[in-house]
């Protein structure tokens, strides 16, 4: 399937394209800033979950192809997380951007979100084959941080909601299922 990678790449870019289209056409509702922040944040979470789904999927299907997309999905998670952070700092806070420093220190839900972004940054920077080779055994250990990242992202989401926790709880449930596949006893059951 030589076209599968470019196809998935374009698919992953579609939510971003729709947001740009919506922004240009002034079609994002009364609070476009919040809409972009919410959408990019949600897509970062979804891509992170998708990248975490590839290993279980390989085992379920008994085929290696899902692993070919794992890095791309992870990098898109980082891409949307970066858009999310940039929208918050440059569009939402705008000229009040120094407030972000205070926010990162004083607001736990922002501290947690920022920490998750730092982890994704580290994983993105070390995602190349060259870095993988250079880091050797350390690479796999470093990339286990993705489990911490997904936990922080979900905490970030749960923490910012005012009263209706349904949406973040659905993502939390999906994350738990994906993490459960990594637990040793469950792995043994499968063999």
């Amino acid at each position: 399937m030589p076209w599968s990678k470019p196809f998935v790449f374009l698919l992953c870019l579609t939510p971003f394209g729709l947001l740009v289209w919506g922004a240009v056409n002034n079609d994002l509702g009364a609070d476009p800033t919040n809409e972009i922040t919410h959408q990019t944040g949600t897509w970062a979470l979804r891509f992170l979950l998708a990248s975490l789904a590839m290993t279980p999927l390989r085992k379920l299907l008994g085929s290696a192809w899902p692993i070919r997309f794992r890095r791309m999905l992870g990098l898109f998670a980082f891409f949307y997380a970066t858009m999310h952070l940039a929208t918050y700092v440059f569009v939402d806070l705008g000229l009040y951007w120094p407030q972000v420093l205070e926010d990162v220190v004083k607001r736990p839900f922002i501290t947690v979100g920022f920490a998750a972004w730092l982890i994704l940054l580290a994983l993105a920077v070390t995602s190349t084959r060259g870095m993988q080779r250079r880091l050797g055994r350390q690479w796999a250990r470093l990339h286990k941080l993705v489990y911490l990242a997904i936990g922080l992202v979900i905490l970030h989401f749960l923490w910012l909601v005012k009263a209706d926790l349904r949406e973040p709880l659905i993502y939390a449930a999906v994350a738990l299922v994906l993490l459960a596949f990594r637990v040793k006893p469950l792995k043994m059951l499968r063999h």
């Binding site: 002034n26 009364a30 440059f90 806070l93 705008g94 000229l95 009040y96």
Partner: peptide
Amino acid sequence: VDHPRWSQASERVIGSGFSLFGNR
């Protein structure tokens, strides 16, 4: 007096059609 989870020092100005740096 901040909300325990976010700052109340400034506010985002609602209005479809937005600009970089000008929504607060």
